[in-house]
Design a protein around this nucleic acid. Structure first.
Lengths: 222, 222
DNA sequence: TAGATTGTTAATCGATTAACAATC
DNA sequence: TAGATTGTTAATCGATTAACAATC
């Protein structure tokens, strides 16, 4: 495996390749060429070969790629077989939605505990994961190896909870709050799920289309 | 406002500018230079000036940008004052989390209705939004102008529900399912909230750090 | 006015695409 | 073998950064 710092763009495409390859495998497809995969996904075949070549040689000249093999290679690159340990911090609506519906194990992640300050939640087990008192977070992290904290607390306490997690040397934060928790002085990995950013980008494109439709009308179009 | 097709990268930065400017305004900051804003956000001042210049001239030489004015300009660019109408399709955990906790109106979006097939949900009003029988979706869309569908149904029906929405000429889909619903033959705008893609990207970076730590140990580091 | 900072043009950097020898 | 398709190098394209005249 080469290692000359793979660009973020490439990394973001890997889960999409994985999803498409899973689908192909599910449909019984055995082999795929970069040209075929590209046409399915809207990429050029060049880009696909370039992307994969960052990590090794997974194909075979004249044949293409074995769907199953390639799928597994990408899963490995994404660390799905490493069983990183995650905890959920905050069991409000979004936290519960994740506990109940998001299959962490399907993605090779162990959700080993959840934490909340709400007395009514503490002690409950949801989907096999126990909810502990947030006050015991310090002890828990001292006694367990935790890689990832899923941050799903209310916005007003998000920064403080994030600071605590960073102080406890969490390795990564999957941030579901709409607060920016970038910490320049720590080397924690932060991955944001900013719902509002996504909605606003969508809204921009809808607005753009509003305008182009007005234009079309103005010049006598549909 | 210039209009030579602004790149997606620029559009994705706009909500982040908005968030930072809101924060500055909240803290009573009146003016900001591109250099200051850049240092806050980890961008170069050049990039910030380039980004804004796609949409107009919002600054003043020798002074910088008025925080409030710039914030409002960006909000306008993002279409926050257009009150686009949205409906929620699927009121499972994630749908309910959105209804209860995500303030659509704060982002200039009107959530006007929700739909589900579950008899137990139909007729209930959550946070001021009524849940209707999914069977009435066709009639509803005929009688109301709807811009955006928030898709939060189970994965196994996602594609079919998406197809129905597209057939009903929905303009945009905010997709919370982990299914790809890209429709090459329609010009619906699709914005994906693929939780698993985000988690896998995070997991890649955590895995990368695993390896660099092993390396460090191997060469006698920490 | 002098200093500061914009908006924009030019230079650089990086990512995508094209081309092709290697080879299955 | 001949045809197909990879992995990689070179060419192109686009995005970021630097530089600077314009001007508040």
């Amino acid at each position: 495996m080469k290692n000359i710092k793979v660009s973020n763009n490439v990394i973001r495409r890997l889960p999409r390749y994985l999803r498409k390859l899973d689908e192909l495998q599910y449909n019984g497809v055995q082999r795929v060429s970069s040209a075929e995969l590209g046409s399915y996904m809207g990429f050029t075949s060049s880009q696909i070969r370039q992307d994969f070549s960052h990590f090794g040689e997974f194909g075979q000249q004249g044949y293409g790629y074995s769907v199953g093999l390639l799928r597994n290679q990408i899963a490995t690159i994404l660390g799905m077989d490493r069983n990183h340990k995650a905890i959920l911090v905050g069991t409000g609506n979004i936290g519960r939605a994740l506990m109940d519906n998001f299959c962490f194990s399907e993605w090779g992640i162990d959700l080993i505990a959840a934490f909340d300050v709400d007395e009514d939640m503490i002690g409950i087990k949801r989907n096999g994961v126990e909810i502990y008192d947030a006050a015991t977070l310090f002890d828990f992290m001292a006694g367990h190896h935790v890689d990832i904290a899923v941050l799903a607390v209310p916005s007003d306490v998000a920064r403080q909870v994030a600071d605590n997690l960073i102080a406890l040397e969490i390795r990564a934060i999957w941030n579901f709050t709409n607060v920016d928790i970038t910490e320049p002085h720590s080397n924690v990995i932060v991955e944001n799920m900013h719902f509002s950013d996504s909605l606003m980008a969508l809204n921009y494109y809808v607005s753009e289309k509003d305008d182009s439709m007005v234009c079309a009308r103005e010049v006598g179009g549909v």
